[in-house]
Amino acid sequence: MLGKASSNYRQATYEFEDKSRRTSRFFGLELCKQVSPDELVILGTTGSMWDNLLLETELSEHADLEEELLKLGEAAQNDQVTQETLNQLAAHLQGVLGIPCVLKLIPYGRNYEEQTKTLEILVNCFNHKDTAILDVTHGLRHLPMLVQQSALVLQSLKEVTISGIHYGALELTSDNITPVMQLGGLLELDRWNQALAIYDESGDYGSFVPLLEQSGFSKNALDSLRDASFYEQTNSVQKAQVKLKNFLTLLKKEEEVCSPHAALFLPALKQRFSWVEKNQPHQRQSAVAWQALENDNLLRATLYGFEAFITKLAEEYPNGLESYNVRSQAKGDYEKEQPSDSWNEYLMLRGIRNNLAHSSSQSHESVKKALANRTSLSLALRRAFKVLIPN
């Protein structure tokens, strides 16, 4: 990023993580030398100090470019730099630096449309599965936020790997040395946010595994979490409960050595897994069903809601949670009894479940009505859940 033309940037000696030092007015040029990229992309506005940037390179020694650079400086002062001019100078800069260079205009980001356009321009600078190194040192003060957002979009839309976000912290200069800060940890925080959102929507623990692995947790802990996820998805709630308890025990032992980012999110993780302390397994299935219903995942809500009610019935029988025959017996006994306080809601939930599970169109009229659209199905499930598996 390149800031608006007013006065030139102050020269600074930047110190990188490996303790090497480079001196320049433009951090991006020194970062380029440090990391040796395949391509350099510089984004700025029609009023950015393009002339000062180019004068910092060996282009200033080209007498034949002197007039062009003077015109560029005048255009920057008048907020009139054109993309055509930048394209011509990019070719000269490529000759100096020895790598492909892209100089590209972006809007000022004064409103939502301009901010989105900047994101679009930045994203289009990369190909699918590229590796990106980002620099947020210079530019208008709101642009680093846009760069961070672009990093998230790059990962989502183009599977671009962000290997670093760098900031030359001039305000932290001490003894004439300016430290270079790595801000890539912000992306890990976002990955945790995404994992929590995925879990809240789907109930699947799988999104936490790579983050916990990266944070230093043991294979035993991760395998327990993977197994818990498998058993819950295959409707073996008791086995899932055992595995998740084992994971939480290991988590308690290992959390002292985990990454700071993981430590920040572990309380939220534990809170979401607190169901393992409940004595009645149907409560977990009920929680998943309600969670799916709130997130409009109506197929998952239906399947888990129906199974939660059968599990609730089977809990009254010896070995009812482990035996298919006993579960079938509990269901059969309930259907023979047909309790008046829940029978209509049960028929509705069973009819919806059978229709969705078997793609059957042979349903009672009330079930067909419930399946007519998203709103009616959601309301029908909510009414059934309140009676059969209240949360």
Rank of each mutant, 00 (worst) to 15 (best):
L134I: 15
N176E: 12
R110D: 06
G73W: 03
L2K: 12
A357M: 10
H138E: 13
N246H: 08
G216S: 08
H166K: 15
K386I: 07
D200M: 03
N297P: 01
H138V: 08
N193Q: 12
M49A: 12
P210F: 11
R353H: 13
L356F: 08
T178E: 07
N127T: 01
I198Y: 05
C32W: 11
E114N: 01
S274G: 06
A195L: 07
S150H: 05
N391G: 04
G73N: 12
R353F: 08
S378L: 05
L347H: 00
A240G: 15
Y304D: 15
P281D: 02
T118N: 02
R374M: 11
N52P: 00
R21M: 14
Q329T: 14
E15A: 13
K368W: 00
M49T: 01
G185A: 07
L154P: 02
N87P: 00
M348C: 04
W275K: 02
W290V: 11
L122M: 01
G332H: 11
F27N: 07
I389C: 11
P267R: 05
A384D: 09
G109R: 02
A240D: 04
A76D: 01
S218T: 10
G332E: 13
H128G: 00
E159H: 13
L40C: 04
Q233D: 11
G206Q: 10
E74S: 11
L186C: 03
Q88H: 13
E61M: 07
L103W: 12
Y14D: 09
F27S: 05
E322H: 13
L105V: 01
L93I: 06
T161G: 05
K219F: 06
P144E: 11
I133C: 13
R374K: 15
R383C: 02
F26I: 14
R110P: 00
S218C: 09
K129I: 00
V237W: 10
E307N: 14
L89F: 08
A268E: 12
T45W: 03
D200P: 04
S323M: 04
L298M: 06
L250D: 09
T302A: 14
F126V: 01
E74Q: 13
Q94Y: 03
L154A: 00
L2H: 10
A151L: 05
S286C: 15
E213T: 10
K117A: 09
T82L: 04
S174P: 01
N319L: 07
M49W: 14
E294Y: 10
I165R: 14
R110K: 12
N373V: 00
P339F: 02
A262M: 03
K369T: 08
L356N: 05
I177G: 06
K104W: 00
Y231T: 03
Q194F: 01
L293G: 09
